[in-house]
């Protein structure tokens, strides 16, 4: 086998890994409720094109999905705090947040027990992807949006497509998103 073949074989796992390839079974096995939403480009593109601009609900959805390629949501609700670890959170984060992603929102509430991280993948002025990770003592929410979207539209997405409303997601509405120092999410029982 020549060098190119070896290089290609080595690259295949990297190319193939995506949100749906991540092994969520460990978390879902412990969760009292698991929610999945998967919208692919085909459904978003074809469906979005035919949404009505006159119907208010459809018009909002139409605007939101216009340039999206994939919407991926996972929500895990646990019976009690501490059923997932910082390692679980970190493995999810490292799976999604690769080189080129920038953390733009880092909200810590309830003494750091609830954290919200928003990451953007940008190309120039264009946002190419958004990753949201919300870690609460009894709930873990992962939202990955592949495609062009404006940060202020995140607030409009909350409550739709199974994406939870996440207060504090867009505090910079109308202003510039300022990166904040990173801090690992800590479930209640690990503090």
């Amino acid at each position: 086998m020549n060098k190119m073949g070896v290089w290609l074989l080595g690259a295949v796992p990297l190319l193939a890994v995506g949100p749906s390839d991540f092994d969520w079974s460990k978390l879902s096995a412990k969760a009292k409720e698991t929610v999945e939403v998967n919208l692919d480009q085909n459904l978003l593109r074809v469906g979005g094109a035919f949404l009505s601009s006159r119907d208010s609900d459809q018009a909002v959805a139409k605007e939101l999905v216009r340039d999206l390629k994939n919407v991926f949501v996972r929500v895990f609700e646990f019976e009690k705090a501490g059923e997932y670890t910082t390692q679980d959170v970190e493995s999810i984060r490292s799976q999604f947040v690769k080189t080129g992603w920038q953390k733009v929102v880092d909200v810590k509430e309830d003494g750091g027990r609830e954290t919200t991280g928003v990451y953007l993948q940008t190309a120039g002025d264009l946002i190419k992807g958004i990753f949201v990770l919300v870690a609460e003592p009894r709930e873990l929410t992962v939202v990955h949006i592949d495609g062009s979207i404006r940060p202020e539209q995140l607030q409009d997405l909350g409550g739709k497509f199974g994406i939870p409303r996440m207060p504090g997601l867009t505090p910079q509405r109308g202003g510039e998103a300022k990166p904040k120092p990173e801090g690992p999410a800590k479930p209640k029982d690990e503090e």
Binding site: V35, V37, L39, L43, L44, V46, G47, G48, A49, F50, L51, S52, D57, Q58, A61, V65, V75, G159, K160, F161, G162, I163, P164, R165
Partner: peptide, 15 residues
Amino acid sequence: MKPEWVLTLVSTLRR
């Protein structure tokens, strides 16, 4: 159903 209705159906999912 037509895809726009599928999308509308899913978009109404709230938590």
